[in-house]
Nucleic acid binder design. Sequence first.
DNA 1: CCACGCTCCTGCGCGC
DNA 2: TGCGCGCAGGAGCGTG
Length: 294
Amino acid sequence: MLWNLGTRIKGALPNRLKEDALPELPEVETVLRGLSPTLVGQTINTVTVRQPALRFPVPIELPTLLAGRTIIDLQRRGKYLIIFLDSGSVICHLGMSGSLQLVPNSTPASRHDHIDITIGNTLLRYRDPRRFGLMLWTEEDPMTHPLLAALGLEPLAPQFTGHALHRLTAASKSPIKTLLMDSHKIVGVGNIYASESLFQARIHPTTPARDLTPARCCRLVEAVQSTLSAAIAAGGSSLRDFVHSNGKLGYFQQQYFVYGRAGAACRVCGTAIERLVMAQRATYFCPRCQRRRG
DNA sequence: CCACGCTCCTGCGCGC
DNA sequence: TGCGCGCAGGAGCGTG
C-alpha cells in the first residue's frame, strides 16, 4: 500500500488551486487516519535527516532517540501530529507544504525529502519544500510542550459551542476573522476555512469579535464544524486524485464559496466577491451576504 | 495581557 | 526564451 498524503499539487493546475493543498486541520486528520493503521505497533529501525533546517531545527540526536522505539499511538492536536513512542514522543507539523508518505524503503529521495523514518521495509517520509513544518522530540507529555500547551479549543470537540465561542469573542476587539485564525483561541482554522466559515455564517470578516451576539456565535460554530467535517469526509479523495479522475476542478475547489474568488459572482446572490487583506492574509467575502450585524 | 507585524522558505505566474 | 520580481502561507516571536 502506498499512501500519499498532505500537499502534493503541482504542474498544470492554476495557481489558485495549489492553495487547496494546504495542510489544514482536515488534511492533518486525514494523514492521521491514513497512517495510524500502518504505523501503530511498529518499531522504528533507522532515521535519516537530510535537511534539519525546518521551522525549528530537527534535533541532531533524533535518529539515536528514535531507533528501536515502538510507535504506540498517533494523535492530532490542532494541526500538530503527535507520534507517541514507547518512550518519548515526536511532535510534527506540516507547515504549509509538508507531507508524510509511506513508501517502499528503496524509494530514492528527491530534493525536498528531508526526513526518512524506516519501519520494516517501509519508509515514513517527511517532505516539505518550503520547510515551514517541524519535527521535534519530547520526553515529557507532549501536550505540555510549549508549542501545544497554550493551544485553544478544538473546533470539532463537543466543548466548542456557541456559548464557548461567545465567551472567547466577548473579550476581544480583534476582527472575528483574525480571532478565528488565532490558534491560542481556536486551533485548526486556517486562512481558507476562516473565509469559508464566515461566509457560511453570513458574518462579515471585519466584524469586531466582541460585537457578535450569542446567536451569531452559534451560527459560526456550526459553520466552522460543517466546513471542517465536510472536508474530512472528503479527505480520502485528494484534490489531485479528483482532478485525475475527471479532469476538472477538484472537490474542495468546487466547495469554495468565496476563497480565491475575488471579482467572481457570489454563488448565492451573484454579487461580486471582494478581497481584502487582514493581518497580512488574503480575506474573501460577499459584501451582500455577509454583514456586521444580524 | 493584548494586538499587530515580521519572519522563515520555495515554487509559481506574470511582466518585460 | 529567460530572467527577476512579488506573492502565497502557519504560527512563533518580537515589539509597542
